[in-house]
Design a protein around this nucleic acid. Structure first.
Lengths: 243, 243
DNA sequence: CGGGCTCTTGACACAAGTCAAATCGCGTGG
DNA sequence: CCACGCGATTTGACTTGTGTCAAGAGCCCG
């Protein structure tokens, strides 16, 4: 039996904006059920018009676009609390695919209820827009990273983001965080070749800044990492709504 | 005296989704007035919490982020029909700046009415989310371009986008479209240096594919341009809502 | 034990950046 | 009306970051 939203395992994390009891109650109606998938499953596929909206409860994945020549751009990494499928919800169809990198547990919503969300729950509708704006913000940041930073800076920045996001979600234990991706995934996200990504990772390891081996990310010098990634180590992570 | 929305000069363009009479009526209440600015004006500034939302009626501009080292990433180019300021509307503050590249005329909305839009006009609220999703889609495309394409391909793609967008807005006259940007602007958008951008533009000119001089873009071979930009020349431009 | 992914490293090629200088265009002021 | 100055555009010479190719090592799973 699916968990009730009021007992949602991730709702209380401080990264998420708090919800009123009434909102939680509506979400329970909006929720269609839960779904578990194996690592490697494609949840949503580019060009499809999937009838489902998900919130990630656990596990990690990635969003990507494929180019005509077979190259792939990883748009971002999907972590618990992320909402996927909004594009198909409001536009005709998905413009990217979403794939599970680990087994994932997902909260499934009824797309046909999306309209009632807008009609009857303006606060939630507002949150949805907020979410889309936050997403847009992150994409803008990634764009700036690809456009303006070199390889080591991009990787450093990505690691800082992972680390912070992981911290906010309590995914960091003993200074380590599980990053279930391949170097190819990271390379495709940062617009680098695997080979160069690999060599750059080695540099970060050699300089004792951060290491990522056996699927575990270990930040050795948060200072240096932020410095490389051109991020302010003091910046406050922005809160976002959970749908 | 400001134009009434029912007479809005850009509403009828086919790129925009049609509006019901009731929606138009609401927009007239939502609208606070109009504003005209000179070229070079900064409309919104990164980190500020501007109280205004705009829809561009005429003129062009650009959205950009500045990096700590003084580099700049142009996030996208702002054309008539674009809605700016949504980020400040739903999040704390703007994450990017918006600057006018030509004189611009803007439709100004009251931010404090944003909430009533969500409360009383779910269809418009939906459109706002739709808009955010469309925006996100475009950023994803740009990300893929920066990550996966080389200089000539990126520029070709940018030109195709400009050309199509311009066509949809009736900005192309006599095979020419006014592009009031500097090569530095384009370079900052595509993650290239001005020098290399310049040399690549020359290649496109020499190969009779496209030329951009004196602020005028001239597409000589749409076929070749799409081919270079890895875009399907037959793809349908996606419709979007006008706010 | 073998096949297929990843990950790693080295050698080499090439796209793109940097530096520098000349030219062009345009608005301003003498 | 012309001289000046400033920003944008062009071009060449050189440097360097990153990609490609290739081959080997490690590892997991059947």
């Amino acid at each position: 039996m699916a968990t009730l939203c009021r007992n949602c395992p991730i709702r209380k994390r401080r990264i998420f904006a708090p919800m009123t009891r009434r909102e939680v109650a509506f979400m329970e109606r909006f929720k269609a059920g839960e779904m578990s998938v194996d690592a490697g499953t494609t949840l949503l596929i580019e060009g499809s018009n999937s009838p489902q909206l998900f919130t990630v409860l656990s596990g990690m994945g990635l969003r990507y676009k494929t180019m005509p020549e077979g190259r792939r751009q990883v748009v971002n990494f999907v972590l618990p609390g992320d909402f996927v499928g909004l594009q198909a919800g409001v536009m005709r169809e998905m413009q990217h695919s979403v794939e599970a990198s680990t087994p994932m547990r997902l909260c499934v919503f009824r797309r046909d209820e999306l309209w009632s969300l807008f009609r009857d729950h303006p606060e939630r509708a507002f949150d949805l827009t907020w979410l889309a704006a936050v997403e847009e913000h992150f994409l803008g940041e990634s764009l700036a990273a690809l456009g303006q930073l070199d390889a080591i800076e991009r990787i450093a920045r990505a690691f800082v983001k992972f680390h912070d996001h992981g911290q906010a979600l309590d995914l960091v234990t003993g200074g380590e965080m599980r990053l279930p991706y391949t170097q190819q995934d990271l390379a495709d996200a940062l617009g680098l070749s695997v080979v160069h990504t690999n060599k750059t990772l080695r540099k970060l390891r050699d300089q004792q800044v951060a290491s990522w081996q056996n699927g575990k990310l270990r930040v050795l010098s948060y200072e240096r990492l932020c410095d490389l990634g051109q991020l302010d180590p003091e910046r406050v992570p922005l809160q976002r709504p959970l749908i």
